[in-house]
């Protein structure tokens, strides 16, 4: 893994292309502050991992990037998050089209109680990404192939998505997110409900998705962060403690808290 990783990282630094910039982001749930003054640059065509102990705010921060926190009445976000240089918390920005550009995969697989085909076609249909059935078929197939699920389900596209196994369901949800053609893909602990085999399939998938998207993944597993990401951010008690290349974070952490966490002393 190491040699491949290194070359990729050099490529990454060459094509240094910032996709999402967070500036002084603070999040409050009622009176409680969940995120304190976070600044972070997320790169395009890179997998960025958010790690940290439970309740450290990593999922909260992830949900800021596509304004999913808007659905929680007591949540309040301050500061700026720029997507391609444009502030997504600007008054003029509508969260609905934003979420089409910044897709999300959730912790628990949540396929709709519809057929596999309709699950994947949901986003394209809503956003009018196809003009006819043949085009839609193409998008669905491409998305399912992208999620490494096509071969398993191509003969039963009309069966309910809820009938698939847990790992297949999660890949279906990834295909559903991919079919909308987002620019950034947010994944909130996508493997926490999966067994090791399904986990490794999803991880392989994340590695492929990096070709086309900026992927941000929240994970509890440091091994997973080390396996799939190129950049890692360590959160602790609502603060972004350390952010850098994954290899550096895991081999030469700068902050004593990061070192304690990755060596298993806190968390």
């Amino acid at each position: 893994m190491d040699s491949a990783h290194l070359t990729e990282r050099t490529m990454q630094t060459m094509a240094d292309d910032i996709k999402v910039q967070a500036r002084n982001v603070q999040v409050f749930y009622g009176d409680k502050q969940a995120i304190k003054d976070v600044d972070v640059d997320i790169l395009d065509k890179t997998v960025t991992a958010f790690i940290g102990p439970s309740g450290c705010g990593k999922s909260t921060f992830l949900r800021c990037i596509n304004r999913m926190n808007d659905t929680i009445p007591v949540a309040r976000v301050e500061g700026q998050i720029l997507l391609d240089g444009e502030d997504i918390y600007d008054r003029r920005v509508d969260p609905v089209p934003l979420r089409a550009r910044v897709g999300m995969v959730f912790q628990k697989p949540n396929p709709f109680p519809k057929s596999i085909y309709d699950n994947v076609a949901y986003g394209p249909r809503i956003h009018g990404l196809s003009r006819n059935r043949a085009e839609l078929d193409g998008i669905v197939e491409q998305a399912l192939r992208g999620a490494a699920l096509w071969d398993e389900v191509k003969d039963r596209l009309s069966e309910p998505g809820t009938g698939l196994s847990g790992g297949q369901q999660q890949r279906l949800c990834i295909a559903r997110a991919v079919a909308t053609a987002p620019e950034v893909l947010l994944m909130d602990e996508p493997c926490s409900a999966l067994d090791p085999i399904a986990t490794s399939q999803v991880e392989e998938l994340i590695d492929q998705l990096r070709q086309d998207y900026s992927v941000v993944i929240v994970t509890h597993s440091m091994q997973q962060a080390a396996r799939v990401s190129q950049k890692t951010a360590f959160f602790h008690l609502g603060n972004l403690v350390e952010y850098g290349d994954t290899d550096d974070i895991f081999t030469r952490p700068q902050d004593p808290r990061t070192e304690s966490y990755i060596s298993g002393r806190i968390g």
């Binding site: 659905t71 959730f106 949540n110 956003h127």
Partner: peptide, 17 residues
Amino acid sequence: PQSLRDGSLGLGSTHSE
């Protein structure tokens, strides 16, 4: 489940959709 609503909103659909 709320997760279905989140999933739909997360794909960029509106509340009424």
